[in-house]
């Protein structure tokens, strides 16, 4: 069967299955298990309503349990075992990681990525959103900034490999250096420490457009009166931006920040395609992929460390959800 036909079939089966499940399970609940008639009518309705949310939740709950929660719990358990998974070794994997210089480098890089990329992408996106908002040719500028969002990181890596190429006749960066009179081409992906920033630049480049589009919509949703009141109060454009508009869209800013952070954590493609993790640019996901099929215990421990790295964002998100949820 050609893959595309199979895909369409699976949509058909999946969606009808899902919709049918919810429809019929509710039907069974209301008609068969707790029928809303007879003497116990009112009580049955109450009982059915206790069960019903779980009918709606079940597919998602099962999916995320199977694909995220259990693997996560399993990974923690696995990280306490040795390479073969036979012997319980406690936290020895973590201790071994602590002593591993490559791991330390990857950890430091990952920390840097998590700190720098979301911050830079959000800030640049916010600035771009504000500046393009009042321009006549805004749509053109926005399209230019937005385009990288739709690219795969492999595509983006390709584009920037081209920019960074170690040859003044191919790489734009080296061509500019040559024009400015610098001697000899420079491979920016091999300069220690700085090369990580050149890699981050690529991710920032892809994510700024995303941040911009969302933030500019949020900016436009701010009631005009508030801005006009600030104008009447004598605030200039910068003050209005920093003191009126930014606090108003704080919620959206944090959503963008979170989404970009999630992406950063999963970023493996970019480093893999650009430097292969060499020259001290390795990040935790790449490091983990490296040890994964050799030593699952070690790899699981790396995943746990990755998890700890994002704990602040996780805690913050949970806090937000709590506040908004109930």
């Amino acid at each position: 069967m050609p893959p595309l036909v199979m895909a369409l079939m699976s949509i058909l089966i999946g969606v009808t299955g899902c919709v049918g499940y919810v429809y019929f399970s509710n039907l069974v609940l209301d008609r068969v298990i707790f029928p809303a008639s007879g003497q116990t009518c009112a009580r049955n309705i109450g009982r059915a309503n206790l069960v019903r949310p779980w009918l709606f939740l079940f597919p998602a709950l099962a999916g995320s349990m199977l694909y995220l929660v259990f693997p996560f719990a399993g990974a923690f358990w696995r990280s306490l075992f040795d390479r073969e998974g036979d012997a319980f070794i406690g936290f020895a994997n973590y201790r071994a990681l602590g002593a591993d210089h490559v791991f330390q480098g990857a950890l430091a890089n990952s920390l840097l990525w998590v700190l720098v990329v979301p911050a830079a992408a959000t800030c640049l996106g916010l600035i771009a959103a504000r500046l393009t908002d009042r321009l006549r040719w805004a749509n053109l500028a926005r399209a230019a900034i937005f385009m990288p969002v739709t690219m795969s990181l492999v595509g983006a890596a390709l584009i920037w490999k081209f920019v960074y190429a170690n040859d003044a006749d191919i790489g734009l960066l080296n061509a500019i250096r040559a024009t400015l009179g610098a001697a000899g081409p420079l491979d920016v992906l091999q300069i220690p420490v700085w090369n990580s920033f050149f890699l981050m630049a690529v991710l920032i480049w892809t994510q700024t457009g995303f941040a911009m589009v969302i933030l500019s919509a949020a900016l436009r949703a701010i009631p005009r009166e508030i801005i006009e009141a600030a104008i009447m109060d004598g605030a200039d454009a910068t003050q209005i931006f920093l003191r009126i508009e930014v606090p108003q869209i704080k919620g959206t800013i944090t959503v963008v920040w979170t989404l970009v952070t999630i992406l950063v954590l999963k970023v493996f493609d970019l480093v893999y395609a650009m430097t292969g993790g060499n020259f001290g640019t390795q990040v935790l996901p790449g490091f983990m992929m490296g040890v994964m099929f050799r030593d699952d215990g070690r790899a699981s421990a790396v995943a746990m460390v990755l998890m700890i790295l994002v704990l602040p964002i996780l805690a913050w998100n949970i806090g937000q959800a709590r506040k908004g949820g109930d």
Partner: peptide
């Protein structure tokens, strides 16, 4: 319900890589 809402936000940041081998 509150717990599940929080959990859905929490699962957002679970690194996928760790699910690969068991899955």
């Amino acid at each position: 319900r509150g717990f599940l809402i929080a959990a859905s936000a929490g699962l957002l940041v679970v690194p996928l890589q760790l699910a690969f081998v068991p899955l």
